[in-house]
Amino acid sequence: MPIFNRTSPRRWRRVLPAALSMAVLLAAPVAAPAQWLDYKTPGVPRLASGAPDLAAQAPRQDGRPDFSGMWFANVPSRDACRTGDCIQEERMAMEQMNMGRKLQGGLPYTEWSKEQMKVRGANGGREDPHTYCKPPNFPRAWTLPQYLKIVQTPKLMVILHEFNAAYREIYMDGRPLPSDPNPTWNGYSVGHWEGDVLVIETSGIRDDMWLDVQGSPITESAKVTERLKRLNFGLMQVQITVDDPKAYTKPWTVTIEMAAQVDTPMIEEICMDNERDVEMYR
């Protein structure tokens, strides 16, 4: 500690405030308040340019792939020009419109589902729970136009969602699915590993929920299996299988590709803060 040897206690008392001020000044650029929106995410593999190396290997945790981080459907940002106006299109997975859009013949709806969807489709789909600021229910929530964030630990995965600042828990501690679930918006989820694939099984979903804007149902009879595979740093595949005999004549599977989002934070989006559209429907 040479500085103490060269500086008397009295002098140190004099210079300490100045030293502290200098330390604050030196630290200030790091904590500048304007930088929160594009603050660099630590731990991201980067190219020489500083840009994230999206093709880098998937990170691992405890010998398994680590899905931690922010994600958004891997859809490009495109412009569309109509009637003289160029419009930046909404970025979201098109499965938000129709979960079965890539399936030949679409989702295998039961007659009950078809009747439900006639009602749900009336009035421009106004009765969509999402319209009324209801929670972002999975598996639909993978496709909503807000970011989600996975926080992974060895025994528990938490998925945070910007919309309504929501959360979902996935237990990875070996427990079984409940035999008498209390139905909820996201159901009850347990996960296990099959190699590098995280298999999430869910039951106990609330009855008669919506999977997309056109009102494809998911019901209390559903068992959902999501298989998460991290292809590299930048990409994750979410393969969703829905086995719901009330709503579908057979199980079906769709895959949503998610892109890692870095150098920006989650931003709270509380829908009920100033919801004004429902009153305009009346």
């Binding site: 319209t131 600021c133 804007v213 919801e275």
Partner: peptide, 23 residues
């Protein structure tokens, strides 16, 4: 949805953040 109908699109539509915008 009205816009989509006007544009002769067959696909149903959603709003930017949370609703159908049929109002």
């Amino acid at each position: 949805r009205a816009l989509l109908a006007g544009l002769a699109l067959t696909l149903a539509a959603t709003a930017s953040a949370h609703h159908s915008q049929s109002e």
